[in-house]
């Protein structure tokens, strides 16, 4: 039964990863990165690794997207 959950989450993670790579808009790509991070956190928990899951949760939920967006904003301002 848990393998079904793992498969569903894996499919969702693959969809998110596809969007993170192939999306035309960088904003959508960064949002998709957030989806991948959330799902990988649940998968880590499923593999009985709560420490790694908590690291992924605390880094990926807010910090990564904030730094990505700050960088993106700075690049856009520099390029005019």
């Amino acid at each position: 039964m848990l393998i079904v959950l793992a498969s569903v989450l894996g499919i969702a993670s693959m969809v998110g990863a596809y969007f993170a790579i192939h999306s035309k808009s960088l904003t959508v790509a960064i949002i998709a990165t957030g989806v991948v991070s959330l799902i990988s956190s649940i998968l880590f928990l499923l593999l009985a690794a709560p420490d790694v899951a908590m690291t992924e949760a605390s880094i990926g939920s807010a910090l990564t997207s904030a730094i990505f967006f700050l960088t993106l904003n700075k690049i856009r301002q520099t390029n005019g």
Binding site: T27, I30, I31, G34, L38, S41, M54, A57, S58, S61, A62, S65, A66, F69
Partner: peptide
């Protein structure tokens, strides 16, 4: 952790 931090990402975006 997700319950308390998840909304910050949404606000940032």
């Amino acid at each position: 952790v997700y319950a308390i931090l998840g909304f910050i990402g949404v606000i940032v975006v």
